[in-house]
Design a protein around this nucleic acid. Sequence first.
DNA 1: ATCACTCTTGTACGGATGTACAAGTACGAT
DNA 2: ATCGTACTTGTACATCCGTACAAGAGTGAT
Lengths: 202, 202
Amino acid sequence: MTPRRPQPSRAPEGRRPQRARDPEARRAALAKAAMEVVAENGVGRTTHRAVAARAGLPLGATTYYFPTLDDLIAAGLHHALDALQADLRIWEERLRQSPDWPEALTDLAQEYLKDRRQVHIEYELCVAAARDTALRPLATAWMDGVPDMLAPTIGLDTARDVCAVLDGFILRALATDTELDTTRLTAAIRRLSPDHHPVPGS
Amino acid sequence: MTPRRPQPSRAPEGRRPQRARDPEARRAALAKAAMEVVAENGVGRTTHRAVAARAGLPLGATTYYFPTLDDLIAAGLHHALDALQADLRIWEERLRQSPDWPEALTDLAQEYLKDRRQVHIEYELCVAAARDTALRPLATAWMDGVPDMLAPTIGLDTARDVCAVLDGFILRALATDTELDTTRLTAAIRRLSPDHHPVPGS
DNA sequence: ATCACTCTTGTACGGATGTACAAGTACGAT
DNA sequence: ATCGTACTTGTACATCCGTACAAGAGTGAT
């Protein structure tokens, strides 16, 4: 209906009233939206249009702020990495204050797994980085996050070992959609930690 | 050039001579091709046309044998899982014959990592399964592969622990495109295994 | 007030994609 | 021999994609 548009060359009515300018906020909103879309659809099914819709912005905004789709996705992954590293600083504090760090670490992991979307995107990053060289620095930074946090306490090598079991347990929980096996994880971390001495009579 | 299609309604000349019928071979070829495309492009960028081209078959073959794209991809992942489980039986034998199974397991992992495409697709499966319920049985089966293999020797729980470190180390190597840290991995596996007793005076 | 510039918004376009389908062909049953 | 069926092959089509771009509209300098 509405026999509107008598002159197709000029139809400024349907145009959305222009919003206040805020380039940096837009960049951030797009990065956040990209992160969410990647978490939900995966890197391969992330599109300009999905991100724009998610951010509530017109399609053109995506290409204005990010020259190419890969850049947009990279921004989303970068945003996720920043979020994780902010979390890690909190973790570090919590670990420092805990009398039993292996158990505390397990608790943190379980908490981390509450929001699977966040977890999902990190592993998505790993797999994507395996394919795309440009993402490798991001993946490396992510991979170094937990070990760097643990290194002051237990040394870098052991920290990497602990991070590996942690990743393995989380990957299992993620892929099979099950709960984290906390008791086994804590025990495994203990056995990997340098001050672990099993009872001799076992 | 080439004066185009004088009679567009009838042009049976260019038609490829029909190949011998072999439905099962086609199914298998498509599954294999799907596996390869997924390994190279990822689940999200796998298309009918890429798989068909890879298999050297016409586009229609993909939809004839697999009703939907998701089915085609699932078939590819299933194919990869079968390949892995075949490998696992060989691993099992190699482990049984080795006097030092942690070291042997590390060697096998390193060998496994030689072909990153194969490794890649397995982790792709995990991430995809986290998003898609239909893939979860496949991911679970994959996750159980290594633990089931190790369980007779060290028990299921410890086997899962060892599998977790293994996965963690492999994930790191995959994401950062580095070599597997074999000495650290072997040491970590040893510390997780039940008969490990650290030297008391350390 | 004018201008230059940056940001916003909508739309266009060539191409790729999932799926449907028509036309043709091998092959076993009769 | 013929016939029905299951398989093969090419193409059609609506939709979605990445990217380009034109047309406004704020904003600060002059």
